[in-house]
Computed example of a mutant assay.
Amino acid sequence: MIDFTSQTPSHTKVHGRHGDYAIEAKGLIKRFKSGKSFVEVLKGVDFDARHGDLTMVMGPSGSGKSTLIAALSGLLRPEEGRVDALDVDDLWKLSLGKIDKFRLDHCGFIFQGFNLFPALTALQQVEIVLKFQGLSPERAKKRATEALTEVGLAHRLHQRPAILSGGEKQRVAIARALAKDPKILFADEPTSALDGENGQVVIRLLRRAATEHGAAVICVTHDPRLEAWADRVIKIEDGVIVSDERHTPNPDATLASHH
Score class of each variant (00 low, 15 high):
A119E: 15
E227H: 15
M58A: 06
S6V: 04
Q7H: 12
G196D: 05
S37I: 13
T254I: 09
T145M: 06
D48H: 15
L135E: 09
A179T: 06
E227V: 15
I241A: 05
T55M: 00
A22C: 11
P251K: 14
L42D: 03
H18F: 15
L75W: 10
L153Q: 04
T145L: 00
L91I: 07
E40M: 03
H155C: 09
A193T: 13
E79F: 04
G19P: 02
K169N: 07
L226Y: 05
E197V: 12
A173T: 10
S61I: 05
N198Y: 00
G97C: 00
V129M: 14
L164Q: 09
D105M: 10
K33Q: 14
H222E: 07
G113C: 08
T12Q: 13
S63L: 05
H106S: 11
I128M: 14
A154R: 12
F102C: 11
T55A: 01
N250I: 04
V88D: 00
K98T: 03
G19K: 07
I110E: 04
D252K: 13
R160W: 01
W229A: 12
D231W: 04
D89G: 00
G199M: 01
A177C: 11
G52F: 01
R246L: 11
R176P: 10
D195M: 03
K101I: 09
E237C: 10
A193Q: 14
Q112D: 09
M1V: 14
G167C: 04
Q125F: 11
A175H: 08
I184W: 00
S10P: 03
F102D: 06
H51A: 02
V233T: 08
W92H: 04
T211R: 09
K98F: 00
G81A: 07
R208M: 08
T55S: 02
A215Y: 01
L205P: 03
L130R: 05
F102I: 12
E24V: 15
R171M: 13
D3G: 11
